[in-house]
Design a protein around this nucleic acid. Structure first.
Lengths: 186, 186
DNA sequence: AGGGCATGTGTACGAGCGTACACAGCGCTG
DNA sequence: CAGCGCTGTGTACGCTCGTACACATGCCCT
């Protein structure tokens, strides 16, 4: 073999494989994810993906974690959620509006990874971490029970938008979030 | 071939294939669904499944419809939901409690089919029908906006139970449903 | 009564998959 | 500075998959 083409000591290799996995899932869905498709997308040999991730579940765990980080960063960038003066229902409904307006495909991707936990026990701890992290942020503005409920409501609304191919309705979302918050005195 | 083993003019064939598909999804998930696995489960030849359902999406559409009918029957069997005297939040929270207590696997199955609409456009109309049907039933007790919100909340709560492997919390669910209903004057 | 056509059957093909494994490069440790 | 071991590579095997297709069967319409 031509030794020149050999790329050795690639420190970011593992991360690049995760990035490639996310792109593959975004384009073809989890059903289209395989060691081979990821290898092609990341431009690494097949053996490299199987070396770093023994099973596809391992790869999905890494991908879900990475996707969660991306969304968490978007929340952190939203001052309205953290600002105690701002109306929480408005802030959250607006945040979801941004998500859908900016890149519906990304929302689809992140929910696909998240929902995959339904059938893949390996992903459930990661999904649970995400819920708790989200609820933790919101609990600062209300209380733990209400925070958990807000997460559930946002999940449910997003899901219906994505599953039934309808438009995201921000005023409606704001109204429902307000109801859940309202009785809590938030 | 021995003509005796040939089974011809099997009127329930199509329905039996759908039943078999549901059992396969329940046992192995959608990822384990194939023309071959369904054929084996239904005890029909491979060609029979490809004849009745050209694509797996066709089969999934039929399976989702059937699963929806099953759940709809369970709702119809619940007098508390229809009874205008009963408290709706209590009735719905109790209904979900029954579902999880009776057969968590069935809930998993039905959500897996439902959520598959995220990546399979062919399923989206069926998922949308289901949402509308559910919202339609609940709208009789409240109003269309609240009904849609109740469906979203129940979806979100069920999802978190299934995705994070936690116990279903009926009093919590009742409380949240009450908040969503409360502000609507339901 | 007979032919058309929907239904049912069996087999074969090519593609893609996870997995395994033997070998190559190279830093790190002793 | 020698060799162990982690990282990376290439190839091959056996399996399952969707699809296609040629042929069998018997109801239904004329």
């Amino acid at each position: 073999m031509a030794a020149g083409a050999v790329r050795r000591y690639d420190p970011g290799r593992r991360e690049r494989i995760v990035d490639a996995a996310i792109r593959v899932v975004a384009r073809k869905g989890i059903a289209g994810l395989s060691h081979r498709s990821v290898a092609a997308e990341a431009d690494v040999p097949l053996g490299s993906t199987t070396y770093h991730f023994k099973t596809l579940d391992d790869l999905l765990v890494a991908a879900l974690r990475r996707a969660n980080e991306g969304f968490a960063a978007q929340i952190a960038r939203s001052p309205a959620v953290a600002d105690p003066e701002a109306d929480l229902a408005t802030a959250l409904a607006g945040l979801l509006g941004e998500v859908f307006a900016a890149d519906r495909g990304r929302a689809e991707l992140e929910y696909e990874l998240y929902l995959a936990a339904l059938r893949r026990p390996a992903l459930r701890p990661v999904a649970a971490e995400w819920c708790e992290a989200m609820a933790g942020i919101l609990a600062d503005r209300t209380d733990p029970v209400t925070a958990r409920a807000l997460v559930a409501v946002m999940d449910g609304i997003c899901l219906q938008v994505l599953l039934t191919d309808t438009e995201y309705d921000e005023p409606y979302t704001r109204e429902i979030l307000r109801r859940v918050l309202g009785a809590a005195g938030g």
